[in-house]
Design a protein around this nucleic acid. Structure first.
Lengths: 352, 352
DNA sequence: GTTAGCACTCGACGACGATGAGTGCTAATC
DNA sequence: GATTAGCACTCATCGTCGTCGAGTGCTAAC
């Protein structure tokens, strides 16, 4: 299996093997790895001295570096990148099926997503990140006013994507059923099937005119419709297992801990990560992304990596799931677990 | 003002002054405080030697203790308790109005609560905790089926407390408007105003019978009603500023950090804290509570304290707000800020 | 091209003493 | 009898210093 037909790599096979060995070792131990270790770890029968020369080359090429003169080597971002792109064995990629993650089928999407985050976090020992789907909602699909109490109306609004919005409207005086019927007719005939752009000022004045004394109700309803269609704000991002970051001492030095945990509390920062992934997947094929170190969209996360995937519930409802860990995270396991989870999400929702 | 009429305290005035001095000093510095410091800090003209004797007494009585032989003293839980109950000056309690917390009026309660948490956290430099209100929802108030698409019905359910639940119901075949009208009538006449207990099996079979071929729809609706009324699950607890805990070194030693931050991620633990406060307020008057150290309902939090308050939106909708900090938190400031926030919440919602 | 050998670097660790804040106790003072 | 000065003692903190060992780069031999 190993031999891929063409390999456009500046590294010869031996260097690749050594680089792989350095990275694997570092992933396991978290300590800089020296030449002697490699000389035993690999099947290459080479002395530490030879390895040292090769490592020196690799350092010059920017794949590894020394934290301080005369200590072992650590992979650079470039090193990790090369590893993830070219060196990870198929075996590593396919640990996925190993453990079954079981998502209990729940009614609410929200509950499912939260659960997914928790599962990822506990299974990987990293931090999970799940965004609610961005929703493609343009057109008004259904609109209804009902009387709930003598002075209270309920507006129910359904827009494309089956997003439902409710709004209670208090009225000055009691409205009789007949009026409600008329208002419903009025609003439905004029608004149904329209998008936000189509609900312009002219239309609104027209409606208010026709509504006679009930302009206020019409205003309230239109506000609610606008909000239901717009509703950019309600993107939520759930996190789980943020404390898992404490397990990796590299991340806890100095003030990094605060920065990182802060980032997990900061919606804007998380959005950056989520959006980066969404954008990339918008263009290309739906695959997992890996962002390593400085590739992360959030500056405070430069010592971390993230494995992301995009889920698609149809109707343009797409969201992102991510696993954030230290740069020396077990990419194979993270990708495997993610893969497994995505399959399950698909099964649950792709019954369409 | 200082002199309260009766003081049923085992401490004479001088001991109280010394205890106050120790605590105030410790709150500020976070370092054990010694006799010499006190001898200057107070208006008592006493030498360090005398203070030492008194402090020795206070230690015996359990108000303060030494982290190790021959270091200054630190307040015990009992000490803090006494301080909060008896020693805090009125001045300290009333810093409240100082800074105006401004809650932007938002439509959604959820948004307001999140904002409140953020405000508290940033203003106090501690961690804020806000629970959504437990909702007193017993009776069905409004129920309506509508056709949204040819094979899709929307059930809108409103229960006491104006909680609205929507449920989409897919049907095998198209249902005409007339049938919907009949179903609406049927469901409303039988279910309206009922509580969960009253919707028993007999009633359900009756309804299904009357519904003829549309039993499935009736089932779905009843399920949704049951869920809307029950809905214990949807208690949410928002936190903000969990990273502020990093600022207090006492809490970060050894493994405590993990425990604490973990607790902030753990809904069950947070519920304990919230419920403890709610329970106490259920019984008595609506005031702020302070839980110190071991008084905290959550074991992982024994090195922390929390100031809680209960907000009441009417209709039995009550929730808890808490400020969690180290035991040496500035209780005065926390209580003041909390007070100020509560007033604002009242203003926003008590327009009833 | 590979390897053995060697001098060198540098962080981690533990021992050591100095420092200083703080105590408890005793004896003198008010 | 309460207060205070004085003193010996405790103990955490901090900087210094030498040791240790993992690891390197370089040179010379294979």
């Amino acid at each position: 299996m190993a031999k891929e037909p063409e390999k456009i790599s500046e590294l010869d096979e031996r260097k690749e093997k050594i680089l792989t060995a350095v990275i694997r070792n570092y992933l396991e131990t978290g300590e800089p790895v020296g030449s002697r270790t490699i000389s035993k770890y690999t099947d290459l029968k080479l002395s530490s001295a030879t390895i040292r020369n090769e490592m020196s080359d690799l350092e010059e090429m920017g794949y590894i570096f020394q934290p301080h003169t005369s200590s072992g080597r650590i992979p650079t971002d470039k090193g990790y990148r090369f590893y993830v792109d070219n060196l990870m064995s198929d075996k590593e990629r396919e640990i996925q099926e190993r453990e079954e993650l079981i998502i209990e089928k729940a009614d609410k999407l929200e509950a499912v997503l939260k659960q997914a985050a928790k599962l990822l976090a506990t299974n990987t020992n990293y931090t999970a990140l799940v965004s609610t789907p961005e929703i493609h909602r343009n057109k008004l699909k259904f609109l209804q006013l009902s009387k709930v109490e003598s002075d209270t109306l309920l507006a129910v609004i359904v827009v494309e994507g089956n997003i439902i919005k409710n709004k209670m409207i208090h009225t000055e005086e009691e409205i009789d059923e007949d009026t409600i019927l008329k208002l419903n007719l009025l609003l439905n005939t004029h608004l149904n099937g329209l998008s936000l752009e189509e609900i312009n000022l002219g239309l609104i004045t027209l409606l208010k005119e026709r509504a006679g004394i009930h302009t206020e109700i019409v205003s309230s309803v239109i506000d609610a419709v606008a909000e239901a269609i717009r509703a950019d704000e309600d993107l939520e991002i759930y996190t789980s297992g943020t404390t898992n970051m404490f397990k990796y001492p590299e991340l806890m030095d100095s003030g990094k801990a605060t920065d990182i945990i802060n980032t997990f509390e900061n919606k804007e920062e998380l959005e950056k990560i989520v959006n980066a992934s969404l954008a990339e997947n918008n263009a290309g094929k739906n695959e997992m992304q890996v962002y390593i170190g400085k590739e992360m969209a959030s500056p405070a996360m430069q010592d971390c990596s993230v494995v992301t995937a995009t889920y698609d519930l149809g109707d343009g409802m797409r969201g992102t799931i991510g696993i954030v860990g230290p740069k020396r995270m077990d990419y194979g396991k993270a990708m495997g677990t993610m893969n497994s989870l995505m399959k399950q999400l698909d099964e649950i929702y792709k019954k369409k």
